[in-house]
Design a protein around this nucleic acid. Sequence first.
DNA 1: AAGTGTGAACTTTTTCACAGCT
DNA 2: AGCTGTGAAAAAGTTCACACTT
Lengths: 209, 209
Amino acid sequence: MKIKDLPENTLHRLVIYLNVLDALEKKKVDSVSSEELAKRCGVNPAQLRKDLSFVGNLGTKGVGYSVKSLKFSLKKFLGRTEEWNLVVGGLTPLAEYLINNRDLQKEGFYIMSAFDTRPEKIGLIINGVSVYNLDQLSYVTKAIKVHIGIITSEDKPEEYFQAFLRENIRAILNLSSTPLYSENPEVKIENFSFPMALTKLSFFLKNSS
Amino acid sequence: MKIKDLPENTLHRLVIYLNVLDALEKKKVDSVSSEELAKRCGVNPAQLRKDLSFVGNLGTKGVGYSVKSLKFSLKKFLGRTEEWNLVVGGLTPLAEYLINNRDLQKEGFYIMSAFDTRPEKIGLIINGVSVYNLDQLSYVTKAIKVHIGIITSEDKPEEYFQAFLRENIRAILNLSSTPLYSENPEVKIENFSFPMALTKLSFFLKNSS
DNA sequence: AAGTGTGAACTTTTTCACAGCT
DNA sequence: AGCTGTGAAAAAGTTCACACTT
């Protein structure tokens, strides 16, 4: 099974399983069946087992799954036993929130520096993270390996996007409300914005009861 | 075509189309073909046309789509011509970011109040939004119609979730890192967390080049 | 006895290809 | 002539059901 064959929805569910397992572990649950875990995740048990089969033979027939070891296998599979270096494009309030958020570090995501194009933002240091002019990005990528770029700028998301691509940052979390897309399969973009998430809810509300 | 038949992925893409159209409108683009719009959204043109056919007959054969009127049709279809009242569960830094964020209001999403269970948070007023004890939620839902609940609490997401359900808040944006799920089809939950989004990227990085 | 892992059946979604309108 | 809207075909994803292991 080649990795590129992992369906996007399966990846999405694997991430859910990991997080639900984490919650179970905190509740001191040792063992779980596909039926029970699937129920907590809102999926069909057969689907959960098929999803997990992409990762490996992780359960014990007749018994179920060990919460701890399944969680570890998923973490490993998803690249979450490694540490990742991030940069942020646009020193917006959302960027400041992310920079001040200790949880990301705890999960292995390290924000190394931030970039902006507005003179009044350049030179600031927030929670130990320096803000540089965007045109200095290449100096940073020469000094350290940058794995992920986060775009928070609302007015020029494209500008940060292009700068990230130029510096060969191929994994991008775009938090601006303008979805970004690249046809280059070497580039992976996650688009998320609060208005977009809320819009799915407004559609639901408009069409219910 | 019943609304419940709208596939989740189609809804997701309609939201993308709306946002890309918004960007096009700002660039003063008047008209667009399915091929061009699809390219910008990273989808197949036939898929875009089929997705739009859930909304109505929106284009002109031989010509294409008017950016302005297609955007309006989508906004209407997605419930974004209406205004929605929101409450926030958990006065975390993320909650404060959302409360201070003017863009949500501009898009028709109004945060009416915030709730917490920690005594030191109760009574605060942030950007005009009052913070109440969670057990006061029912007074607020009696006074105003609350459409959407946003969960930002990391330690007790379930507690806010249950409180929202008790008050018949049926559209929930869960920003905690514990995914939530309900089997009640009257309840719609959007789960998002930064670590979950970044995990999809770490998986991509782990398996590329 | 219980519950996983998985081929096979089924369902849904995507893409093709073209009729039909402007 | 050009591009939409949509049945039909193809592809993908989900669920079933059971052989198999502990």
